[in-house]
Design a binder for these strands. Structure first.
Length: 573
RNA sequence: UGGGGCGUCGGCAAGUGGUUAAGCCAUCGGUUUUUGGUACCGACAUUCGUAGGUUCGAAUCCUACCGCCCCAGCCA
């Protein structure tokens, strides 16, 4: 018997036709052609370590890393850790793990915005000296009020014209911890009447007397996103800073800081639309709600759209990467049909997952003309079309398990599975004909009696007669009992994000646990993460909860089921 | 009502003045099949948010209008 375990293929080089449309790549290509940055391309993936990465981040990761790769450049992993109140090392570690799992390597280029705090502080003083930044002592409330709104210009702060010396002294006091939270902020002096509210003297620093997960108590002033991001990009030599659409309004400020500091060459910010997926939610807030509300078992619940959840669910990283390439990159905000992702998952698994047989809803079959204590075995291929997967041995005896769905007392015309008087093929074993059925008081079948054709060894009829149905089975004497967790979409509406109460639309059948599935022997004792196709049922993966005594398999995704569709449509004849 | 974006098939998304308006997913037919899986074949926008205009010719240029998204955190 050949070991059917196959590792996932190594990171593929995307073929040109696989790379989806991508206007960002076109812009970068134009910059390279124009000789900007000496033709170099450096990007960065800049997560804030305050949560888990999800499929939406995967889109950004694939874009950031593959744009860099395409132009012979590199992509940095930079933690945007400027807000100590929400961030932690736990998230830093989870993010590293997920990016690696997705298949990307940032090499030595791991950075933290917090590494630049000193540099940023010095730069802030440069702006103060140029008269381009000032310490504002207004209360948060006053600042908000004086910012104006979409219809009214803002009002200058009474502290806007402090002298350079006073600003410097005050700013140093801020850093020295001599001021309370909210007592003062450092602001860029731009234009309180600017039509873009982002430009109305944006805050650069706020005071927070809280420890930071990396800098400890060294700082009590922390830079704001706008002040930290572009400068961090510049420090790292980033040439193209890719981000989502909501930062489009911030681009003028991104450029303003760079220009004020006379940084050259300057990184270029390019915005693209974030990913939305049907039948799930992707906002950090809602994901957090699912976890904290106990609606799922945690960030890595297999129903979560997080990378850790998808990993546990059994989604191959290759499939996620291909999905991200296929959806393309544009500025249109849309909702991608989750069937595209599911297609990529099935497509990858079709070629990489060894086959096996498992019965999820067992119904006993007795082969009446098979000797009580005899047993034999059949050799079955681990893949129907790829011989390199090898074969395995399937034990067989008089009593077997088949799936309840594969037997009907009174079948419709187009049903071609087992029924009284009908003959079917037991996959890779033999042909059997149903001769009798035992039922319980409710008329529910309990035992199906069959006779087998001794000449049909392997499943081929010696006389060449046609047998339409082929069903899977497991030898009762040799079956291994295991748990199967059948996962499905988390929500039962296409766009839960758009619902008033998205939690009201959780799919009650998103997880169905089968306590006693009957597994063929080869399905026991496998490592978590091992994938298999349970023939005619779906793709499964071994869950970390699995033990040698009790295998636990998660359904990654069901096989397409044309018959079920026909049944639903009433087109079964 | 200010600023910034976006509108091409059910969903993504090409197309940048002359193409029969790509491709993929979904859907619907059919062939093959020891998985009602896979594979393969076929169907699927006379039309590009709307209305005008420019042009021999427009999804592509101009004008107006309509619709949707984002922005008033000392979050990112």
């Amino acid at each position: 018997m050949t070991d059917p375990t196959r590792p996932d293929a190594p990171t593929e080089t995307p073929s040109p036709e696989e790379e989806g449309p991508n206007f960002v790549a076109d812009l970068v290509a134009a910059d390279v052609a124009a000789g900007k940055h000496g033709g170099k391309v450096v990007t960065r993936f800049p997560p804030e370590p305050n949560g888990y990465l999800h499929i939406g981040h995967a889109k950004a990761i694939v874009l950031d890393f593959e744009i860099a790769k395409r132009f012979g450049g590199r992509c940095n992993l930079r933690f945007d850790d400027t807000n100590p109140e929400a961030e932690s090392v736990e998230f830093v570690e989870a993010i590293r793990r997920d990016v690696r799992w997705l298949g990307y390597d940032w090499g030595e280029h791991e950075y933290f915005a917090s590494d630049y705090f000193e540099r940023l502080y010095e730069w802030a003083k440069v702006l103060i000296r140029k008269g381009l930044a000032y310490v504002d002592s207004q209360t948060p409330e006053q600042i908000r009020l004086n910012r104006g709104d979409y219809h009214r210009p803002g009002t200058n702060s009474p502290f806007r014209d402090r002298s350079v010396e006073e600003n410097l002294a005050l700013f140093e006091k801020m850093r020295a911890g001599e001021m309370a939270e909210g007592e003062a902020v450092l602001r860029a002096k731009i234009d309180m009447a600017h039509p873009n509210v982002v430009m109305r003297d944006p805050l650069m620093y706020r005071i927070r007397h809280v420890p930071h997960h990396r800098t400890g108590n060294r700082w009590c002033i922390y830079p704001m996103y706008d002040w930290a991001h572009g400068q961090s990009d510049a420090i790292e030599g980033v040439t193209h800073s890719l981000c989502t659409l909501e930062f489009e309004d911030h681009r003028p400020l991104y450029d303003w800081f760079l220009e004020a500091l006379e940084i050259d060459p300057r990184p270029r910010q390019i915005e693209f639309a974030r990913l939305n997926l049907t039948y799930t939610v992707l906002s950090k807030r809602r994901l957090l709600q699912l976890v904290q509300g106990g609606h799922v078992d945690g960030w890595d619940d297999p129903r979560m759209p997080t990378l850790s959840g998808m990993r546990r669910r059994g989604f191959p990283p290759e499939a996620i990467r291909r999905f991200c390439r296929r959806i393309g990159v544009s500025k249109r905000e849309g909702v991608v049909d989750v069937t595209l992702l599911e297609h990529m998952v099935r497509d990858h698994l079709e070629h990489t997952a060894p086959r096996a047989m498992a019965v999820l809803d067992p119904l006993k079959v007795v082969i009446d003309n098979y000797p009580e204590d005899a047993e034999e075995s059949f050799e079955a291929p681990n893949h129907p079309t790829d011989p390199s997967f090898g074969t395995r041995t399937l034990p067989f005896c008089r009593e077997l398990w088949i799936d309840r769905k594969d037997f009907m007392l009174d079948p419709p015309r187009k049903y071609h599975r087992l029924a009284p008087g009908r003959e079917v093929r037991l996959r890779y074993a033999c042909l059997v004909t149903c001769t009798d059925v035992e039922c319980d008081a409710d008329g529910r079948p309990t035992v199906v009696h069959c006779t087998f054709d001794p000449a049909s060894r392997g499943g081929t009829a010696p006389d060449g007669r046609k047998v339409r149905g082929t069903i899977h089975w497991v030898s009762a004497r040799h079956a291994v009992r295991g748990e199967c967790r059948l996962y499905d979409r988390l929500f039962d509406v296409e766009n839960p994000q758009g619902e008033d109460d998205f939690l009201a639309h959780l799919n009650p059948a998103s997880r169905v646990v089968v306590e006693n599935a009957m597994l063929e022997p080869s399905l026991a004792g496998l490592e978590p993460g091992t994938r298999r196709q349970f023939e005619r049922t779906g793709y499964f993966v071994v869950d970390p909860d699995s033990t040698p005594e009790r295998p636990v398999w998660n359904r990654t995704i069901a096989l397409k089921d044309t018959w079920a569709k026909m049944v639903a449509r009433g087109a079964t004849g």
